[in-house]
Design a binder for these strands. Structure first.
Lengths: 347, 347
DNA sequence: GTGAAAGCGCTAACAG
DNA sequence: CTGTTAGCGCTTTCAC
């Protein structure tokens, strides 16, 4: 570890005050728009500021004011388009409020999740917005619970005293499956990632609830848990489609799994929706532009972002006191496009 | 703008020193692993640290040391998978070196780009890694040139005194096109985004260079500039494919444009590669898993990340002095898969 | 309305 | 080897 030579000092509020011929305090008052400064003083300070190209030193402000105007955001992976868009939305909400968002990818590694939370602490984040990948890891759990700043937990089931934003996966899924049942489908397949986390659990619940509500047994054999998050789904789906009795409708994760699924479907020379109906869990760009456009489950990320921001800012700016942890539910909408048709044998 | 009440003060190095029964200076030495501390002292301080749960205050360190151990990263949009992966790689390189990366999306908005650079300044970034969307915008340009910290410009042509990492788009493209020419293709289409920026310019150069090298005229009519970055390419590609004389090979941006292109191709009932050869510019996940796997132009983002990190860290840690701006070129590889076949009329 | 001064938490220089 | 001390740049009392 080399000894990084410090940067040259840049212009400080002292020099501004000096050039303006006022005291340090007055300069500060002008900069912070504190009322009760004479026009004369203000003008001279402003002039000095532009003349010197003065910029407030953030570290000094943070040290003195004990707040960094920075929000920590821990996600498993921005390369997941869902998270990328979420981050964009979150960043823009907070920017409006004068905060900067520090993004950290945990890549699902428990130790990194702990390290990142630690880093959020020592860097004095004013608040954090996190979706830990390890919901059940004792130490991650402890680190989350020990968070000393306002926090919002994003779509995870973690026992702690923080605010939460949760997606209504179960309802959304139930809606989609009921729709398929209504089209006469009974052999409905579900292809999901292996992660044992809140979203997956809830989706499964919704899937089963839909059958239960229709007085039908859920087709257990058609639920495919992929072996790994990044595992190619092509083989698994192909196998599913080649069974003597194959599903007539499929719900699959709208990630790379969806691509694999489409490939597998085409390979079997099945047509969407005539031969098989398809619903994407998640709504990637191309679901809309695909031929045919794919029906999908979607959560509105702008809503998620603004709700999360509201929860966090309420606390940060003292609007919420030490009130109870709050829970905000965000709908999972089912977008009907053209990838589902009545079950052939059932019309 | 409410007046955010400051957070409660957390434990400081003073309290650590007090509990350990040593001076503030000794505590600091232990924390910073400065050699020349007795084992006794070290142990007592360490004990006090864990006992109190002490964490160094980053703002104070940054203020005092005039470095933030933070790298600013400005990209147009993390929702672009290329940038998402790049960020991941960059983040991980810098994390190893003890730095945190602050990501900001400019969404191509010139004013935001200026604001972000300004923010990087006042927050005392130790270095920045930027790919401004607006290469030709006077004020953005000025802001980039005025950057007062070590900077790496990512794949942009901007006249300034900063280090650069540039992708060899021209060579990569020339390679791919030569390959197609070698397969007997003459009517080669190119579908690219409208952005007038370095990557696009270089690709176009490479495209033309390949024809020139083969002693052939570049087919100007087959170059499609999409109207907007997000514009659906479906119609444009369909039009291309329906011409009396249609391209027998196509190179298209490996973004949503690729999906649209594939849709258009299928809609015309053309088969890949028998009826039309296809090359993706950029290598999204599904290019590999598609049926057939798609040949693609790819840049190794780990290389980009580590080169960028090296350039930046060299300067930050004073290894490079005030030397000339450096330029690092990164290959654009052409990955041959199975989406290209000999031109039918030419075998 | 303005100035002087204290101190946020830390590191590094200096004296012992 | 250890303690003391002087600020880093800023905001915010408290006097005037």
């Amino acid at each position: 570890m080399a000894a990084p030579p410090p940067k040259p000092r840049s212009v400080s509020i002292r020099e501004v005050a000096a050039l303006a011929g006022v005291s340090l305090g007055s300069a500060s008052r002008v900069i912070n728009q504190v009322p009760g400064v004479s026009d004369n003083t203000r003008e001279r300070v402003m002039k000095a500021i532009t003349e010197l190209g003065y910029r407030p030193n953030h570290a000094a402000q943070a040290l003195r004011g004990r707040r960094s105007r920075t929000i920590g955001c821990m996600l498993t992976d921005v390369a997941n388009p869902l998270y990328a868009r979420l981050f964009r939305a979150v960043e823009s909400r907070f920017r409006e409020a004068g905060y900067v968002v520090l993004l950290a990818n945990s890549l699902n590694n428990p130790q990194w999740e702990i390290d990142i939370l630690e880093m959020f602490h020592s860097r004095g984040m004013d608040g954090v917005l996190i979706a830990p990948g390890n919901e059940r890891h004792a130490q991650v759990l402890a680190a989350v619970q020990a968070l000393e700043m306002p926090a919002v937990i994003l779509d995870r089931d973690i026992a702690c005293e923080h605010d939460r934003v949760q997606f209504e996966h179960a309802q959304g899924m139930q809606h989609a499956v009921s729709y398929l049942l209504g089209l006469g489908h009974r052999d409905i397949g579900l292809v999901i990632a292996p992660a044992h986390n809140r979203p997956m659990r809830r989706r499964l619940e919704g899937f089963q609830a839909a059958f239960r509500a229709a007085g039908l047994p859920a087709p257990k054999d058609f639920i495919v848990h992929l072996p790994g998050a990044m595992s190619p789904a092509f083989d698994a789906v192909s196998e599913l489609l080649q069974r003597p009795r194959r599903p007539t409708a499929l719900l699959t994760m709208g990630t790379s799994v969806l691509n694999d699924t489409l490939n597998a479907i085409h390979r079997q020379r099945l047509r969407i929706p005539q031969d098989i109906s398809l619903v994407s869990i998640g709504d990637p760009d191309f679901a809309r532009s695909y031929t045919p456009p794919l029906s999908a489950l979607r959560v509105d990320l702008d809503t998620v972002a603004s709700q999360s921001a509201r929860l966090l800012l309420d606390r940060i700016e003292g609007r919420q006191g030490v009130a109870e942890p709050r829970r905000v539910k965000v709908d999972v909408e089912f977008i009907v496009r053209q990838s589902c048709a009545p079950a052939s044998g059932a019309a």
